[in-house]
Amino acid sequence: MSNISAPAVDVQDLTKRYGDKTVVDHLSMRVEQGEVFGFLGPNGSGKTTTIRMMCGLLTPDGGSGHTLGYDILRESAAIKREVGYMTQRFGLYEDLTIRENLDFIARVYRMDRRAERIAGAIERLGLQDRAKQLAGSLSGGWKQRLALAACMLHEPRLLLLDEPTAGVDPKARRDFWEEIHKLAADGITVLVSTHYMDEAERCHRLGYIAYGRLLTLGTPAELIAASGFETWRVGGSGVNALVRELEGKAGVDMLTRFGNDLHVSGIDGAKLATAIAPFRQRTDLHWEQSAPQLEDVFIQLMSQSRDNFAGSDKRA
């Protein structure tokens, strides 16, 4: 049964296999009501599959869960009524106009005051002049916004957005995130998947998934703290040479280029300090301790998990 105070999403040990490949592997997580939850992971890590299971579009091979308090295995009809799901691929009809698409959705949800709601949605989109344009003729960013408007039309309590910003230009991405935060302020829970690391910081809480496993869960600050990462930012003309010298050194777990700067990170602060000590005095470099980037944390997590997988493969 639906429960107003239940977590928006609460799944345990979700597992999905395709053939002998485990695409989602014992994934457990909760999304609290009203938060913007970022679901991060590289391509093919199982984000879409997990979201589909959460809204009852895929039957898990193992595990259980509730979305808005409804059982994901048995109450998918109720979930569909109260969840807005925006598919990764544009899911509206390209050969229908903007208005026709919205009208179809409104009818399928059997909504009252259809004309009014559609007019409102089109106005919020700022597409009054183009309501008669075919959806297929819109640019990527506009398609994304239209799809969001369509899945908001039936006033869902939970939005599941699957890579809504993929292939959208930076300005449109920024606008999109503004929109998401506005919705969250209105009390709507938003779960948004992305493989853009820079979008992680915009979420209240994050889950990071790789190879079908949830590797970590928490607020951005928690994730950085938990990683134990220390990061030094290095600038100056000697940076290019430094990369080669630091590569593979004990204590240096990650080297990332950010424009002219180099980020040198390690899990063990002491080891990292020892490793970089010989280079600290170089005149063509200037060192500065900095806050670790979420991106570094995730990349580190991923390379660790890849090692784990490689290990388990050998054992198998």
Binding site: L57, K80, T87, G91, L92, E94, V108
Partner: peptide, 13 residues
């Protein structure tokens, strides 16, 4: 094939 089925299935139809 056009990817609209997933959207359709996510509605109560």
């Amino acid at each position: 094939e056009r990817g609209t089925m997933e959207n359709l299935l996510a509605t109560p139809v």
